[in-house]
């Protein structure tokens, strides 16, 4: 059983009770469908085990800023309704 109220809190979403109820039913149906994955045979034949299917590798770069504040800073501040001078003002984190 999914605890929709708890999930909403974790996801920082406020729900009214009618939506909670509806979501409860929808989640049961979706998770029921998703559980089809339990039928999948996850074992691999010996000759397949060593195959790197993606050939992925890490992409690294120097840990330095590539665009300075002068390039985007002002524009980015403009995007916030909480802009206050040259910073964004938010409420304190702890009550």
């Amino acid at each position: 059983m999914v605890d929709v109220g708890k999930l909403a809190k974790l996801a920082r979403i406020k729900l009214d009770s009618s939506e909670s109820e509806k979501l409860q039913k929808e989640f049961e149906a979706i998770l029921g469908y998703i559980s089809k994955l339990d039928e999948a045979d996850l074992s691999l034949p010996e000759d397949e085990k060593s195959v790197n299917i993606d050939g992925n590798k890490n992409v690294l770069r120097e840990d330095e800023a590539v665009s300075g504040t002068e390039k985007y800073g002002e524009k980015m501040l403009e995007s916030s309704v909480l802009k206050s001078g040259n910073h964004i003002k938010v409420k304190h984190v702890f009550d």
């Binding site: 999930l7 909403a8 974790l10 996801a11 979403i13 729900l15 939506e19 929808e26 989640f27």
Partner: peptide, 16 residues
Amino acid sequence: GREVRRRIMLGTYVLS
């Protein structure tokens, strides 16, 4: 909207 909320919560659930 509704579908976005649904998927965010579904994602939160499967990662919890």
